[in-house]
Design a protein around this nucleic acid. Sequence first.
DNA 1: GTCTATATTGTGATAGAC
DNA 2: GTCTATCACAATATAGAC
Lengths: 194, 194
Amino acid sequence: MKHFLEMSPMAERILDAAQGLIQQQGYNGFSYDDVAKLVGIKKPSIHHHFPKKEDLVAVLVQRYTHSFRGELLNIEGRYASPMDRLAAYGAVFEQTFNRDRRLCVCGMLGAESGSLPDSAADEVASFFKVNLDWLTQIMGDAQNAGLIKKNCDAESLAQAYLSALEGAMVLGRGMRTVQGPADIARTFLSTVSA
Amino acid sequence: MKHFLEMSPMAERILDAAQGLIQQQGYNGFSYDDVAKLVGIKKPSIHHHFPKKEDLVAVLVQRYTHSFRGELLNIEGRYASPMDRLAAYGAVFEQTFNRDRRLCVCGMLGAESGSLPDSAADEVASFFKVNLDWLTQIMGDAQNAGLIKKNCDAESLAQAYLSALEGAMVLGRGMRTVQGPADIARTFLSTVSA
DNA sequence: GTCTATATTGTGATAGAC
DNA sequence: GTCTATCACAATATAGAC
């Protein structure tokens, strides 16, 4: 299977379209024909770039995780304080949600995990691990700096924060309100603050 | 459309089967044939009880919300302390998740909201409202009793808690770990405690 | 790389016999 | 209430021409 770093412009456009569809409808809720219509080519042309739907989604999640890693680096470069970093992390989710109330790709696919090809499910698991590792690190930094209470370990706080952000998007969609992850991030961070 | 309180035993069995499928695969991930195989009758017989998939899901979510209301009453009857009630609420999610790592019906359908018939989406929104109203009430009680910090309003805390629980199930499925909402509930409640 | 055409299977849904 | 038979359509996927 091709790597997402050596991909043609058309393959990129296909992934862009498919990603939007997954964020709105889920893995079982979009078809190759939907993608084809969005990018303006015919269905079999999609198969030329990604022979099977399984391939498409696996690469898509790889790319998504990679771009998230970029965001994490970005946050580290822009903010020094652990609390600012945690707030900026929540803002990434808010930004995604504000774009037509899109879900996190892996929030959607994680929920659908039971009807996902293994290759895709593996990539989703990897996404969560990357994010939890990073959050655990920052939560630990915040605790060592005396910014966050120490009555819970950093790993538990990381899981609770990520869970709250993913869940906030689900609630926001399910209730059809404009409210998104930003408020939940604020609430969470203010409750854990020392 | 029929009400879920006046339903035949077979209709109940169909809903039971469909609910399990939704919790594992989502709305777009199960078919009338899947349900038929589970309950041991043929596909058209399902249509006899629920003419359209839209009907089935709307009734299913109504029944789910109703049963959740029962749980809330149960918790109120069993526990007097707001903190105990909040912990018991988290335990309901843990119980669901421990059964084959099933998702909350409305967590799954909320995520899939974009490809849901209106009738179903309305019921999902109603589920979240019922739960948030109740949680807001209990959070307020806890604050008034001095058990929870007052630096966030009760409504925000309710949203954060429910988001964290729904998200915990998504993470648990996506990462293929046994870990579920119980730990997240514990972490959350200990961070908001006064 | 893209297309037309097609194979194959699955899906929601209906008609009508028992 | 349940069944067989069937419809119309959509899905993933492939073959082969241009």
